[in-house]
């Protein structure tokens, strides 16, 4: 475990958010928050409600512009880039509430993700549909969705929709995977299976997980950062975090 941490930490970071400030009117949501993820690393971001977790995620994804600070992806400054350009620079997001296309089939949802960077003309001529088929099969199998291939996404169970969205996020072949509460509303078994898939994903990219459920990320993450009142108050291995008195004070006692 500790070996993985050191090797991961020494690799060049694929995502760095530095000194992020976000102000809504008189409310300071983020006050110099930072987070970085290296390739092959799984980083957890925790914090009580209202600590600024979601805001930080929105700033990284490009949904809300930061008031101050920089976001870099693979060394490229994307602080002012549109979401679609961040995705094209290697970012991939799984939303808290699964946002899949309910009225399209499961396979089409994956197809949408796979081909999102293809030129529009080639999409009009549908040149890449056959090429995508094997990728779709692979993803379906990896997420145990093969049986649902031609079902509409709205026919899936809640957990399956979450998996479909993680599969879509993986289909983008990201260098950074952002997961916003990936296990929200899942059963224990589903949660374990999700953990397995996230572990499998780390081979290809860095993962940043925002979670409520400390049990879930304790066994999964190499590092955990704790956000409180818009600042990172602690960062370290899961064991260090749990032992940290400040963290216990602001977070653990409230759970």
């Amino acid at each position: 475990m500790s070996e993985a941490v050191t090797s991961a930490a020494s690799a060049a970071p694929v995502l760095v958010a530095r000194d992020i400030r976000k102000v809504f009117g008189a409310l300071v949501a983020l006050d110099g928050a930072e987070v970085s993820v290296a390739k092959g690393e799984i980083v957890g971001l925790i914090g009580p409600n209202g600590s600024g977790k979601s805001t930080l995620l929105h700033v990284i994804s490009g949904r809300t512009p930061a008031t101050g600070g920089t976001v870099t992806l693979g060394g490229r400054d994307v602080t002012r880039a549109k979401p679609s350009d961040r995705i094209r620079a290697g970012l991939s997001i799984k939303f808290q509430l699964a946002r899949v296309y309910l009225d399209q089939t499961v396979a089409d949802n994956l197809l949408l993700a796979i081909q999102s960077q293809a030129p529009l003309v080639s999409l009009m001529l549908s040149r890449s549909r056959a090429a995508a088929a094997s990728t779709i099969d692979e993803l379906l199998e990896g997420f145990h969705l093969t049986h649902a291939r031609s079902q509409l996404a709205r026919e899936l169970s809640h957990g399956e929709q979450q998996w479909l969205e993680i599969a879509m996020a993986m289909a983008l072949k990201p260098t950074v995977l952002l997961l916003d509460e990936p296990t929200a509303g899942m059963s224990r078994e589903e949660r374990l299976a999700t953990g397995e898939r996230i572990r499998a994903a780390r081979e290809r990219c860095g993962v940043l997980i925002v979670e409520h459920d400390l049990d879930f990320i304790r066994g999964l993450c190499d590092r955990i950062s704790v956000l409180h009142q818009g600042k990172i108050i602690a960062s370290g291995t899961p064991a260090q975090i749990e032992a940290d008195p400040r963290v216990q004070e602001v977070y653990l006692t409230r759970v």
């Binding site: 549109k82 949408l112 960077q117 879509m168 983008l172």
Partner: peptide, 14 residues
Amino acid sequence: RAVRDDGERAEFLG
């Protein structure tokens, strides 16, 4: 149809 049903989601697919 993706742009129609949820345009912002489409942007987050790239």
